[in-house]
Nucleic acid binder design. Structure first.
Lengths: 225, 225
DNA sequence: CCTCGACGATCAGGATACGCATGCATGTTC
DNA sequence: GAACATGCATGCGTATCCTGATCGTCGAGG
């Protein structure tokens, strides 16, 4: 899962970036509205954290531009002001949630998790596909109830696939969503990690669709449509 | 749009109901967890407003039951408590948003709007022709609900035909849209793939119009209504 | 109704691109 | 500095694709 943070205060921004990366997200950080808008328009994000009090361009303006462009990623708005009218304005401008500063980092993470879960159409924080379970809260993965140790990248890859269960995900899409910008797209790392995940969870977990990408299917919601 | 309110405090509940009705929603009001759960399970709602501090059954429990039953309507949780851990628990239990009491009615409405907008925003990009369904988002094809495995080229060909359902598509047109430039036009690959698709999906899916090309028709919108 | 020409369908073999697995060098973490 | 994670390069096996030949079918005209 890849996140964009648009925050003009360098300390807070960098701190958020670090925390989120430790949580298992790929994070890009932008420090002003113009650059932030550009990033959000050109790159693929699963969620955006947007500070309203930006220099140059106002956060709400940026948000409005994205929505006009048809961008649908969920946006979590940060506001220093504690007036509910601002919140209402933010929500109506297309924000999906907001958080007033100062806030607990845990709460930010929980809200982010909920946003991504919701935007990918999942009802709970525990993703299940056959014998494999992935708890987005604890970041744990189990196979037949047995805990499985995954590395950071393996987890990111699996998590993205499980969030998009049943969908055919191209290699490019995977690269765009588990790495932050500046990554060699002509590389076979995705294949390598798919191999490693299969070794740990079984070969049948991830299906290859030749020429298109990969797909993670749940035997439970198979046929019988 | 139809809303369910589960709120044990009669005054607040009734007031909310009135306000939302004036805003243009159809509103059902339930005053305890058990009844609320029943309503949510049996009726069709576009969103639910759920108070956590309920008598009898706890709000979080009700929410958990709905999610287990596969209910996906967006849920806005109301909580009197202002501890972020409760909020985190609520979000992770499957809530889509929460609001701490006391709150401004305007804010509630704005959040509700945002929730519904998001949950209905995902128009299904599914192409249907008779027994065949092709989901462009997930890249999957089903026949009578049974998933069918197509190769990349087969998928491209079928996809193009389904996008132009009912139209007669020439072989040249197919080649131009399936292959990038510079492809031997005097080749019979199209015929080969049509054959393969027919083998997988049935001979009647693709109709041959001799001398002109192919056409994919939906019995549903056949000539003569 | 039959014949014939033209077009489309089908089949099978070889070429190729694709994905898999493994080893190794470089980074990162404790 | 050791253990581990990551990403790149290589060689290999195979599903997939294209080609070309043959077979089948449609439809018009005799």
């Amino acid at each position: 899962m890849r996140i964009l943070i648009v925050e003009d205060e360098p300390t807070l921004g960098q701190q958020l970036k670090t925390t989120l990366e430790q949580t298992g997200y790929a994070v890009d950080l932008s420090v002003d509205g113009e650059d932030g808008h550009f990033m959000g328009s050109t790159e693929e994000y699963d969620a955006v954290i947007l500070d309203l009090g930006l220099p140059e361009i106002d956060g709400l303006t940026v948000l409005g531009m994205w929505r006009k462009e048809g961008k649908t990623f969920p946006v979590l708005v940060l506001t220093a002001r504690d007036s509910w009218s601002d919140k209402v304005a933010g929500l109506d401008a297309g924000a999906d949630d907001y958080l007033a500063k100062p806030f607990q980092t845990e709460e930010l993470i929980a809200r982010l998790r909920a946003l991504i879960r919701r935007s990918t159409g999942n009802a709970t924080s525990e993703l299940i596909a056959g014998k494999v379970r992935l708890d987005t809260r604890s970041g744990r993965v189990t196979l037949d109830g047995e805990p499985v140790k995954l590395t950071a990248q393996e987890y990111k890859l699996l998590s993205y696939l499980m969030h998009h269960k049943g969908k055919v995900v191209s290699r490019t899409e995977l690269i765009e969503h588990i790495y932050d910008q500046d990554f060699d797209r002509d590389s076979n790392t995705i294949e390598v990690f798919v191999t490693r995940i299969r070794k740990k969870l079984g070969a049948d977990v991830i299906t290859t669709i030749r020429g298109l990408g990969y797909s993670l299917d749940d035997p439970a919601d198979a046929p019988r449509g």
